[in-house]
Nucleic acid binder design. Structure first.
Lengths: 341, 341
DNA sequence: TTGTAAGCGTTATCAT
DNA sequence: ATGATAACGCTTACAA
């Protein structure tokens, strides 16, 4: 860092005190107009910029938000964009740390941001995270914390998340309505809540429609196209193969699609497919993939808004939970022209 | 920010001066062992954390790097990961700002980071950016700056980028080697250097193989699947349609693929396709797409390394330019079993 | 071995 | 209307 122009430089040059300069710069009422003008002119000329560090040290706040996310896939990147937009508007800077789905890195990142003295945290936990001491540490220090997307259910903190159960219901019910009888599900990692909730919606819907759950039709694979591809291969090689697949991400849907095409099966005729997230890619492949829109950008914005509200409010918001409703977008992969109900 | 434990608290509790505490904490040689032990024990107990703001103010450095990128697509996200990894290792925190391909936001972000007193900048400019006053401002303030990926050619600054011409050459030559005669190109925005360079490679290769360039076969469309889809539709509707398409991104390749499939053409038989970036999706669609690997993660790491070297070196590095060689990964979309050369 | 004091850049309080 | 001083948390000469 080069030496920046400081308030002192201006004071010295104008032969006045630093406090007067400070006041002039902030348009205090009790500064002589000429002085004010002179100060401002010189500040402009010297390209003066207030030193944020000094301010932060003084005010004990950095106007920055620490954001911890497991990765930067489409959904999270979109959410971060939403967070960033609102935060910037409110004068906050966002520091994003990816934990790369690693518990260890999540802890490292938490400590990094703690050291950076961020004013608060916005966190989505990694799929590996099963203990939450590092998150509790944030709360113990009384630093504002908001959980989003992959929230921790039993933790007292404001939360914003998708209604994942409802997403599972919408997808499954749609497939049933389209006449599919044997609906498989490609779920995510077993300990991942968002995955389990989507599956819960699937199970509920089967039950509500008097369809018996066949455990061979539910496969847990990582959030990974390759696994989804292989899992689907197995599924459609079964003697009584499923006639529809609900994958809990679009990436997985693409993996599934690949396997389906290889086998020479037609979508939506032979087999129906519904994904999740409604990523751009879903509308770009052939056939286009029906997918559950999860409003990632809006979730990001809502998260930042809640966070900022929390900063400025005395109220205890730890019980606050915002749940966003998803919406199935129907496309070719699951829309049968002839509905056999 | 709650009141954190400070060095003063420890000093007061132990009835010694803050300087002694400071020394003890940093393992100075001239502190009595007992004092040192007592200080450390209490620090531990009170969960003392040095205040980074105070340190930064004192040392005039924040140990943070400002990263400005146009968006968070797969390639950039991967590069940022590489930057982050190396930076973290070296004790730096990365502040990422997306300009969203907007010139205005890029300026806003530059100022934000300037105010945040980052120790330096790592920048990839937006596709809208044609004037560089904001970047020059960084340099005028003598703040270290490294350009990466989308570099500004005529600016004196260390640069790291892909050899985009070579990428264009590899892709085009491969298509020619596979017997394709009429090779079209879907290029990106006209003012975007990386796009033009890839196209330059395409043109060079045509020339080297005595193939006359047909300007109807070159279409500039945005980095956008939808445009690529439409452009391809037009291309293959031509009377003398191309028998191969080189798209300068995989996203565009997918758009192209969609149009090709719709038309009922087979890849690689009727038409060859080569993309760029080698995103995971390229190997997941059917047929899998040949694509130019650009080593995004490595570019990210190399960028951060160069940046950190720059911080610690007196040497003028403004002429330094690291150029990474890409490598075509051949897949089904362009590999004809019968090579008609 | 330890303490004192100045300084990093700014603002707020209290004088003048 | 303006200035002097203390404070934010820390390090580092310099003094003891």
């Amino acid at each position: 860092m080069e030496k920046q122009t400081t308030i002192k430089d201006i004071a010295r040059a104008l032969n006045i005190s630093t406090s007067t300069v400070s006041r002039a710069l902030r348009d205090a009422t009790d500064v002589k107009p000429e002085t004010k003008k002179a100060v401002k002119a010189l500040a402009e000329q010297l390209d003066y910029q207030p030193n944020k560090l000094a301010l932060s040290l003084l005010n004990r706040q950095t106007n920055s938000i620490g954001v911890i996310i497991p990765n930067l896939d489409y959904v999270l990147a979109t959410m971060v964009k939403g967070i960033d937009e609102v935060a910037l508007e409110a004068g906050y800077t966002v520091m994003v740390c990816q934990s790369d789905e690693s518990f260890g890195r999540e802890i490292v990142n938490t400590n990094r941001l703690l050291e950076s003295l961020v004013d608060g945290f916005i966190v989505s936990v990694s799929s590996e995270t099963k203990v939450y001491e590092h998150i509790k540490k944030i709360q113990n220090k009384k630093i504002p914390l908001v959980l989003f997307d992959r929230v921790i259910n039993h933790m007292q903190a404001p939360k914003i998340r998708l209604d994942n159960v409802d997403g599972g219901i919408q997808a499954t019910q749609h497939l049933i309505d389209q006449g599919y009888k044997k609906i498989a599900i490609l779920a995510g990692p077993e300990n991942l809540n968002i995955s389990n909730k989507r599956m819960e919606g699937y199970l509920q819907t089967l039950k509500a429609n008097n369809i018996k759950f066949d455990k061979h039709l539910a496969i847990h694979c990582d959030f990974n196209q390759q696994y989804a591809y292989e899992a689907t291969k197995e599924l459609i090689a079964m003697k009584h193969r499923p006639d529809a697949i609900f994958t809990i991400s679009d990436r997985m849907a693409i993996g599934a699609m690949l396997a389906i095409k290889e086998k020479g099966l037609q979508m939506p005729k032979d087999i129906g497919l519904v994904g999740f997230n409604n990523e751009p890619i879903a509308s770009l492949v052939t056939p286009s993939i029906s997918s559950v829109e999860m409003y990632a950008f809006e979730i990001g914005k809502a998260t930042a808004k809640l966070f900022i509200e929390m900063l400025h409010s005395e109220e205890d918001m730890s019980e606050r939970e915002i749940v966003i409703k998803p919406k199935l977008v129907v496309r070719e992969s699951s829309l049968r022209t002839t509905i056999a109900k």
